[in-house]
Design a protein around this nucleic acid. Structure first.
Lengths: 117, 117
DNA sequence: AAAATAGATGAATATATGTTCATGTATTGT
DNA sequence: ACAATACATGAACATATATTCATCTATTTT
């Protein structure tokens, strides 16, 4: 029975992958040019309407709307309707830290790998 | 001609989305449970063989190998062959900051949004 | 030389994501 | 009441990602 105990012990040493589930989820929610651009804008403005966001970047209304709705569903953004406008805001400001951090990383040279696909 | 100038000016105010290309690229390269688990392990070990990585988590050899190769191709990891073993290491330690940052974010309550899909 | 070990690789497949287009809905201005 | 504005939504599609399986290669052990 010894080998069973050893196997069980080894199993216990394994990192619990589930602790990364949520992290991966958040990263997936960010990992897109358009969405990063939205987050960047919202990091400087408390809240912005769809039109304001659209004017700040280069994105079709429909596509932006889809992304905004996705991010809201994923708990990244909040949305408040007011008359004809919808105002979106960051739900958790700490997201900004992640963005800053990765922007800092991206100052160097993944460009080659990107180019190579 | 005035309106043309105004349009051009508006165009200039738009955020250059391309600055987020590389950031999105890195985020995509991280946004996966298995890969985060690899990065976590490599953040504590300088370098690890595929077998060591495998023992530290719960992942089939082939799948892990695919992920490792992808991350290498994307410039996240380096790889050194030595006899029967391949040793992988983080190419840029700053990735660890991103991981820490997002793990910190994920301490709170995206769980509901995840559950809701 | 044969078997075992460590890892890589390619095809096949399932699923997720991103994007566009056409159209819908609520609100506001005339 | 009608037109315009601001935004949402669903279908259709293309592309990207994740995963499995079977197989291959290089190295080491016996």
């Amino acid at each position: 029975m010894e080998h069973v105990a050893i196997a069980a012990e080894k199993e216990n040493k394994k990192i619990d992958r589930s602790q990364f589930e949520e992290a991966a989820y958040i990263l997936r929610a960010l990992a897109n040019e358009t969405r990063l651009c939205v987050i960047m804008q919202l990091s400087q403005a408390a809240e912005l309407s769809v039109t304001e966001l659209m004017e700040g970047m280069n994105c079709e209304q429909s596509l932006l709307s889809h992304h905004l709705n996705d991010m809201r569903a994923k708990g990244i953004l909040s949305c408040r309707r007011c008359g004809k406008n919808s105002f979106y805001a960051l739900k958790d400001k700490r997201i900004i830290h992640v963005l800053r951090c990765v922007m800092h990383c991206s100052e160097t040279d993944y460009a080659a790998a990107i180019a190579a696909n």
